[in-house]
Amino acid sequence: MNNISFTRAENIEGAIKKANNKQGKVKFIGGGTNLLDLMKYRVENPDHLIDINELKLSKIESTEVGGLLLGATVTNADTAYHEEVEQRYPLLSKAMLAAASTQLRNMATNGGNLLQRTRCYYFYDTSTPCNKREPGSGCSALEGFNRIHAILGESEHCIASHPSDMAVALAALDATVKVTGEEEGHRSIPILEFHRLPGDTPHIETNLKDGELITGIELPKKGFPEHYAYIKVRDRPSYAFALVSVAAALELDGEEITDIRIALGGVAHKPWRKPEVEKEYYGKKASRENFEALAEKLIEGATGYGDNDFKIPLAKKTIVRALTEAIEK
């Protein structure tokens, strides 16, 4: 790791003030499970770390509109096992428990999880070109080994996929990311607008501004506790990232769909969701034929790069399986 200095932030004002500093590269550290990993590989090279774990962001509390606010520094384990999350948002709990290991979940924070970076091998390997790590250097994955890479929303500059399971469930649930910064004060960013597609700036991954701090994640009232599924397809049944994952949530009136949400992980630079396509299925029957047609539409335009071609049929099948599991619940 490079030489760093370290401080523990005692209050939010102090933390964002320090982060807004323009004279050196300052980073917040939550659980450290992604940042320290990347620092050890010299992919991230901050000058200064601000430990945010003592900030008062470590609670899960009800919101005035009947939702739940997940503090940014609450660990992934404490969030997934929280009674209200388990009961009212079981989709989120399930997705979070499908991620990483018990140890890592005991460390990883909700804010850090959203900002974890891609697992693209070339991004990690500083001896290879990578537009995300070094803008303008090229993308080694395009013609390289790209089994874990994106099939949707990618660009000629970057085909990386987003690795988070939590973010996929949050996308299905229409969560909102709460942030605060010195320049713009408090802001709320809908989860679907939080992460960005790579375009020609793959190094800019979210719409969080420099120095902004995530303070929490707000879940709306509706949690789909009755009909939901999170299916994660991966190379081993635990402790592996998703090749494809599907978060499905439905509301039914008899056999009729009254609300339907499908978010995909492992297939794009951000959790993949198409609310406009979902809406076409409101009022329709929750049948296999409809699920298949919907799956087809959700991944319309998908492109394989060789090693990841299998993700196209896999994603379709996993969508159908997840929706089927969700209605059988």
């Binding site: 499970t33 320290l36 890592l104 460390m107």
Partner: peptide, 13 residues
């Protein structure tokens, strides 16, 4: 009381 990976946290934290 909770188990963590000590390689992924700083002593200072």
């Amino acid at each position: 009381g909770k188990h963590i990976n000590s390689c992924f946290t700083l002593a200072a934290m």
